[in-house]
Simulated assay, not measured.
Amino acid sequence: MSESERDEEPPVQAVVLDIYPNGRSSGGRGGYGNDPLAYALGTRDFRLFEVTFESTPDVSIDDYVAVDPPAENVKRIRNVEYDDISSGAKSELEYVVAEIVDENEQRFVDFYNEAQPITLRLHQLNLLPGIGKKLRNSILDQRKRQPFQSFEDLEDRVAGLHNPKEVLVERIIEELRDDDLKYKTFVGRRDE
C-alpha cells in the first residue's frame, strides 16, 4: 500500500471500555506516577486494545480513540485478550458491541447477505447462536429472492429469526471471550 493510499484511509478507531487516569494500581505505587491507560475495542475487527497515554487523556468511557495511526497523546497500543481487560471493561463490552453493530447496520446485514459455506457441512450462518439447518436454509432462500435491507427486513422475512442484531452481538462476544474458537468471523486475530 502506497503512502498516499494510507493517507486516504480513515484511522482505525476504538471505543474506550474503561480508563485508568493514574495507570494500573500494581507495583505498590497505588497507580500514581504510572502512565494513564485505557482498555478499548476496535470498531472494525473487534480487537481488544490496551492504550497507554503520555499524559492524562481527555477521553472517557464510550469515547472513540484513534489506534492506527495512534492519536497524538498515545504512547503505546497493545493487543490484549479478554482475560487481560478490567472487570469494568468486561461489563461495558456487550453495550459497546451492540452500539457498533447499530452504527454499522448495513455492514452486519451484509453478513447475512454474503455469508458462505466454511466446509461441506458447516456454513458461516451456523456459527451464529440459535441458527440451525432449518433457519439457515430459510435465510439463504430469502436472500436469493432479494438481499436483506435491514435487521427489520431480516426479521420480517425470515420466520423464526428473532432479533438478528442480538444474534450477531452474542456471537461477537463469544468470539471475544473464547480465544480458542476454531472459526472466528468477526473478531480479528491477536497477531495481526
Score class of each variant (00 low, 15 high):
T52F: 07
E114T: 13
R157N: 11
S25H: 15
V169Q: 14
E8S: 05
Y183N: 10
A89Q: 03
G33L: 00
I100K: 09
D141F: 13
N163Q: 15
G27N: 02
Y82R: 01
I173Y: 12
A159I: 02
G31Y: 09
S25R: 15
G88V: 05
G30A: 00
E152N: 00
R121C: 01
G23A: 01
V97E: 07
G88C: 10
E152R: 09
R177G: 10
Q13D: 01
L135Q: 00
G42P: 09
E152Y: 07
K133W: 12
P164C: 00
L168V: 02
E175G: 15
V101M: 01
L125G: 09
F111M: 06
K144G: 03
I100H: 10
A115I: 09
Y82C: 01
R107T: 15
I61R: 14
S87N: 10
F49S: 04
R121Q: 13
V65A: 05
L37I: 05
T56G: 01
F151D: 13
Y64H: 01
D83S: 07
A40T: 07
I77A: 10
D7P: 03
Y20P: 00
G28W: 13
D58S: 14
N34C: 01
P10K: 12
V158R: 06
A89G: 04
D63A: 08
L161S: 12
R189H: 14
G23K: 03
L127S: 12
G33W: 07
E8L: 15
I19M: 07
Q142G: 08
E9M: 05
D58F: 06
T185F: 15
Q116T: 13
P147E: 11
D141S: 09
L127I: 05
S2Y: 06
K182I: 09
E192W: 10
S2G: 11
I100P: 10
Q142V: 02
T52H: 03
F186A: 01
D84G: 08
R190Y: 12
A14R: 00
